[in-house]
């Protein structure tokens, strides 16, 4: 049970990454590989605010996420949007996003150096709590609680607000929303804001466990992509389940096969889904023409 609990908690952070990625993908229909690195910059900003300004972890995390949002919006407006406007294919944008990932990674290494920075909610390392024989550490509690809260807020936003419904509509059929008079570009920008915000929160949560370093940008975007594909690209609930499944599978793999098999388990899971159920757990329903 302890292994499954560990998996669910780390999986909830993966799920957040996957949800943000899926949300953006559902509206823009291209893979943005710089997504993980922008999230890591949010975590770095939180680290700087905590160490230089002695800000509280949660406030620093929110401030870091806002900076990440700004970078996400800029990357969309300056790089991706003009490429889409000029008819750039999704493959071209994928390559461009990889270039952006490398640039941001190197800038981060210049600013924060290439070492692992520690992020902590308290000055002392505290032992975990024993809940019915299961150990849950203060960091795990923070990760699980914030991830759950973020998912609830997002669910309410998407279902109960006009903007949320517009985002879901654009995800279902972009052309139809244009016909209905919705401001597509404005909604895409809003999706970038939400997706990047969620991802930066996730990166700052994961940093509690493994610290922050520039190369984490690649690791996180890979986790996000796997979670999103397992769940069904574009599906929020799918990404949630995909992230949790990935976390549990990785941890079971580490326990039963050994630590060196962690990545192998993750990619095997991805390969199995691509082979058996390429549309993922929750394939998005699409409007199809009936002849």
């Amino acid at each position: 049970m302890q292994i499954i609990l560990n998996g669910l908690i780390v999986g909830s952070a993966y799920a957040l990454m996957g949800i943000g990625f899926s949300l953006i993908y559902s509206t823009v229909r291209y893979f943005n590989l710089a997504y993980g690195m922008v999230a890591v910059i949010g975590a770095y900003v939180a680290y700087t605010l905590m160490n230089s300004w002695s800000l509280n972890y949660v406030i620093a995390m929110l401030a870091g996420a806002l900076v990440a949002v700004l970078i996400g919006m800029l990357s969309s407006s300056i790089l991706f949007k003009p490429m889409v406007r000029r008819g750039g294919s999704s493959l071209v944008i994928l390559v461009a996003s990889f270039g952006l990932l490398i640039i941001l990674q190197n800038i981060s290494a210049l600013i924060w150096q290439n070492t692992t920075r520690a992020l902590s909610i308290s000055d002392r390392i505290l032992p975990g709590y024993n809940l019915f024989g299961l150990i849950i550490t203060p960091n795990q509690l923070m990760i699980g609680a914030v991830a759950l809260l973020m998912m609830l807020i997002l669910e309410l936003f998407l279902k109960k607000t006009r903007y949320g419904m517009a985002i879901r509509a654009i995800g279902d059929n972009q052309e139809l929303t244009k016909v209905l008079g919705l401001k597509t570009e404005q909604i895409i920008l809003a999706v970038y804001v939400i997706g990047t915000f969620i991802s930066a929160i996730s990166a700052t949560l994961i940093a509690l466990e493994i610290g922050i370093r520039p190369t984490h940008g690649v690791t996180l975007v890979i986790k996000a992509i796997i979670a999103a594909i397992i769940g069904g690209l574009g599906s929020i609930r799918g990404a949630l389940l995909g992230g949790l499944l990935l976390g549990v599978a990785e941890n079971l793999g580490i326990y039963f096969l050994g630590g060196q098999w962690q990545d192998t388990v993750a990619f095997t899971l991805l390969a199995v889904f691509l082979l058996v159920r390429p549309e993922g757990l929750f394939a998005k329903k699409r409007l199809v023409s009936v002849n």
Binding site: N6, E209, N251, G259, Q260, Q262, D263
Partner: peptide
């Protein structure tokens, strides 16, 4: 007796072992 990958930083499950 566990070997972990150089990119591993979450040791909790191995520590559980």
């Amino acid at each position: 007796d566990e070997i972990v990958q150089p990119n591993t930083a979450d040791f909790k499950t191995i520590l559980q072992k």
